[in-house]
């Protein structure tokens, strides 16, 4: 528990002299102690490794069509074989290979969409909370407008018009889901601005950007990270929904949502087609949510 005492005994002073570093370290140590966070993180790491090492995990090509081998069941069912251990789909493509390669789409969309919305939302929230007045009114009104659209409806309509592609998916999810960061950062900055260390900064003649960059941003970061983990889970779910509706990445590229959409008509005869990709999404999103929830407990108990 008393990290600092232990550290000064056997580590160089320079390392303990930086409070921000040791605070992150302490958080890291607490995170490691709780099994739930670790289980979640392990699930995320597993899926990430799967997407990186995809070619090593399967010898089948995810887009190779073999009509003569279509609709083979998984290995534990009658008629299944180890050749295609999770079965094949309606045109004879290996389901395991498609699941493994499909993780790339989900993770890429989740990660990059979150980066875009995080940067955009934090910047706008910072401006609104810092400058208040007309800037705040304008940004808050835009937030109200964005919040009036059911997220999926706006994404759906925009992608339909722009044409479905991986890049458009990332852009649309990133540009529609930034409002939460903006709201959060805005209210935090409004509170922070009144505090003494910020006021002291003004008294010392610091410029706006310096106060924002050096003081406000680092203080908002924990809450923003918490939101980002949960937003990544949501972005992955949203990608799968859009792909399910046929507005995801274009057809032969394996995507979990689209696999379920093409598997749905076979639900009575080939249950594995619509079921297995859902389990893959469930594992990924559950892992992110579990790890994210632990991070929330540690970094920012206020957010719920």
């Amino acid at each position: 528990m008393n990290d600092l005492g232990v550290q000064t005994a056997d580590r160089p002073l320079a390392e303990t002299a930086q409070p921000p570093v040791s605070e992150w370290k302490r958080t890291y140590r607490k995170f490691v102690k709780n099994p739930v966070g670790i289980i979640g993180l392990a699930m995320v790491v597993m899926i990430t490794l799967m997407s990186i090492a995809a070619p090593l995990l399967t010898s089948h090509d995810p887009i190779d069509v073999h009509l003569e081998k279509k609709l083979q069941p998984p290995v534990w069912q009658e008629g299944g074989s180890w050749e295609h251990w999770l079965g094949t789909d309606e045109v004879g493509r290996d389901v395991w290979a498609r699941l493994v390669y499909g993780s790339r789409i989900s993770l890429a969309v989740g990660f990059f969409a979150v980066v875009i919305s995080l940067v955009l939302g934090t910047a706008l929230g910072m401006l609104a909370g810092y400058f208040r007045g007309k800037t705040d009114f304008a940004i808050s009104t835009v937030i109200d407008i964005m919040m009036a659209f059911p997220f999926i409806l706006l994404a759906l309509a925009t992608i339909a018009v722009m044409g479905p592609s991986l890049l458009n998916m990332i852009l649309v999810l990133g540009l529609t889901d930034w409002t939460q960061y903006a709201r959060l950062v805005r209210s935090e900055v409004i509170n922070l601005r009144e505090q003494e260390f910020i006021q002291a900064g003004y008294a010392l003649g610091s410029r706006h950007w310096r106060i924002i960059w050096k003081h406000l941003l680092p203080n908002c970061l924990p809450s923003v990270i918490v939101l980002a983990t949960l937003a990544m889970a949501r972005a992955i779910l949203m990608e799968s929904s859009l792909s399910f509706l046929g507005l995801g990445v274009s057809s032969p590229t394996p995507s979990w949502g689209f696999m379920m959409s093409t598997g749905r008509p076979y639900i009575a005869t080939a249950w594995w087609l619509a079921t297995l990709p859902g389990i893959a999404i469930l594992i990924t999103v559950l892992g992110i949510n579990l790890a994210g929830d632990r991070i929330r407990d540690l970094l920012d108990p206020k957010v719920d």
Partner: peptide
């Protein structure tokens, strides 16, 4: 709660359909 939060909505629908319908 965690499972409910992590399931894609259409998948929940398909699974219910598979169980109670099919």
């Amino acid at each position: 709660v965690f499972l409910g939060q992590s399931m894609p909505i259409f998948w929940t629908g398909i699974m219910l359909m598979l169980l109670f319908g099919v």
